[in-house]
């Protein structure tokens, strides 16, 4: 009993410490984004008070640049990639677990390589390819790259979940005369909801935060994403910290919002199969 208590306590101490380390910098960014420049450097760890509170960073961000465009671009790229990764990933996972066809094993293996090899290794080739296709400096190029980046893990996770769905269910649907596509969309997909939420979060976060591909694939203000857009406040000689912190705080919001929305399903998704 006592030992169990001590164990629980130990686990909590570790988890709380981890949470502080993870949340600390984010809190610092958000806190300082509401402070005047002098206060940011004077007392970086202090929360804003009546004297130091200032919205100058946010004002600059909205005034100075194309931040709204950047935000829009990030949203378009992230959402389009997410929808396509989920749709294509779920369909591919279903096909690879459900149907035996020539080359299905090889295809599954090929896709799993994508989990192990980071897509950035192919940056030069991707850049050349997008040039050749006339897609450089477009959001489409980013979306295509992010689909390729997200798909392998999505297929892997969704395949695991599909295997846990009782086979009798699709057999019953087949006896019922439900066409194969409808079996997927109306019987299997609804049961994959927790898995889809899990994959959605895993897909969205790296895309939203990505700096690399916008940097190499986009060159004009109209195609920059928010992570890249923030960089313009970081100069070689002068950095506008108010603006940087304000822009970063805003960039965190959508990810946090999505996590809050999906967290229930995410947790049930991560633990499914572990219990019962």
């Amino acid at each position: 009993m006592l030992k169990q208590r001590a164990e629980t306590l130990g686990v909590h101490v570790i988890l709380i410490a981890y949470s502080l380390i993870a949340i600390g910098p984010i809190l610092l960014v958000v806190m300082n984004s509401f402070k005047a420049r002098k206060a940011i450097f004077g007392a970086p760890l202090a929360p804003p008070n009546a004297d130091t509170f200032s919205l100058v960073g946010y004002a600059k961000v909205f005034h100075a640049s194309h931040v709204v465009t950047y935000f829009g671009n990030s949203l378009i790229v992230t959402l389009a990639s997410m929808v396509l990764v989920l749709l294509l990933g779920a369909m591919a996972a279903w096909a690879l677990t459900e149907y035996r066809f020539r080359g299905s094993t090889a295809l599954a293996l090929f896709l799993s390589i994508g989990i192990m090899v980071p897509i950035r290794l192919g940056s030069v080739a991707i850049l050349k390819m997008m040039r050749a296709a006339g897609l450089n400096d477009t959001l489409t190029a980013l979306i295509l790259v992010y689909i390729a980046q997200g798909l392998p893990l999505a297929i892997f996770i969704l395949s695991e979940f599909i295997q846990q769905i009782p086979k009798d269910l699709r057999d019953a649907a087949r006896c019922d005369g439900v066409p194969e596509t409808r079996i997927f969309f109306e019987v299997i997909a609804p049961l994959l909801r927790p898995a889809i939420a899990t994959v959605a979060v895993f897909t969205i976060v790296p895309i939203w935060n990505d700096l690399w591909f916008p940097l190499i694939l986009t060159s004009s203000d109209s195609t920059h994403t928010i992570t890249l857009g923030v960089q313009q406040f970081l100069g070689q000689y002068i950095t506008d910290w108010n603006a940087v912190l304000a822009a970063l705080s805003m960039a965190i919001l959508p990810v946090v919002a999505i996590y809050v929305i999906f967290s229930r399903q995410l947790i049930s998704g991560l633990t499914a199969g572990a219990v019962k």
């Binding site: 009782p166 057999d171 005369g177 439900v178």
Partner: peptide, 17 residues
Amino acid sequence: APAERRIAMVFQSYALY
């Protein structure tokens, strides 16, 4: 296909949607 055979099957696991 199963549906074209005019059969209906009842499973041990019920297999309800």
